[in-house]
Design a protein around this nucleic acid. Sequence first.
DNA 1: TATTGTTATACTCTATAACTATA
DNA 2: TATAGTTATAGAGTATAACAATA
Lengths: 127, 127
Amino acid sequence: MVGRLGRRLIAMELPILARHEVSMWAYVVLNGLSGGAVRTQAALAASIGADKTRLIPILDDLQDRGLISREPDPGDRRVRLLGLTESGRELHRAVQAEIRDAEELLMAELPAADRDAFVRTLSALGG
Amino acid sequence: MVGRLGRRLIAMELPILARHEVSMWAYVVLNGLSGGAVRTQAALAASIGADKTRLIPILDDLQDRGLISREPDPGDRRVRLLGLTESGRELHRAVQAEIRDAEELLMAELPAADRDAFVRTLSALGG
DNA sequence: TATTGTTATACTCTATAACTATA
DNA sequence: TATAGTTATAGAGTATAACAATA
């Protein structure tokens, strides 16, 4: 059942992401940077559960589109400082809002108590 | 959160499946046949959300191990009648029981009301 | 000609290993 | 020598297309 719900959520999200021309991983990256700048690509990869090599083409694309900043750290020029640009932050907000609206719609018919318990339990079980 | 829970459940199930030497897809097939015989491989594939070509090596293996029956339908020799053998049914029961025990353990600390609401909501949202 | 199952092929995603640059 | 990032390669998983058997 968890798997079916997951597939349903993905099917719901993909058109939203496609409309904004971001892949699922690109959105996860924007999400990972939305809490604040990250000092290394490896740290970002670990925090979102991705491989560091998988990240590179995604970061290349986001940078080309001006959605993220990615500069060498002056203090250690091996590492890249990562952050959202203003338009990156705006895009993330827009996509996140649409996804939240879709989730609201999906759960609209549920009793409020069930819904609260569901989110609480998800949070407890997901770690 | 749904994704994280899904990954956690899979991580929990994989050792159980490995101990019984069945892959995730093989277990899904056993599950799909546990409700009764299925008349065509394509129908089974559709019911479990798999591609019909993906099914073939899985069915080959399950048949070699005597866990499923797979005979041409005498009435239309293009189609294969699929069902569990006695040992297939027994294996399915054993694996399912272990997975359920693990799920119980995972949810043991939850308040009973939250737990009921969670399962009810999953069922409602998953279709 | 249409359908079931099968095989062969190609494509996507992911991980591993080798390489460059900085330290 | 060790580490961050990158590139190249290989592997798994999946889907697409061609094929064989039967209707």
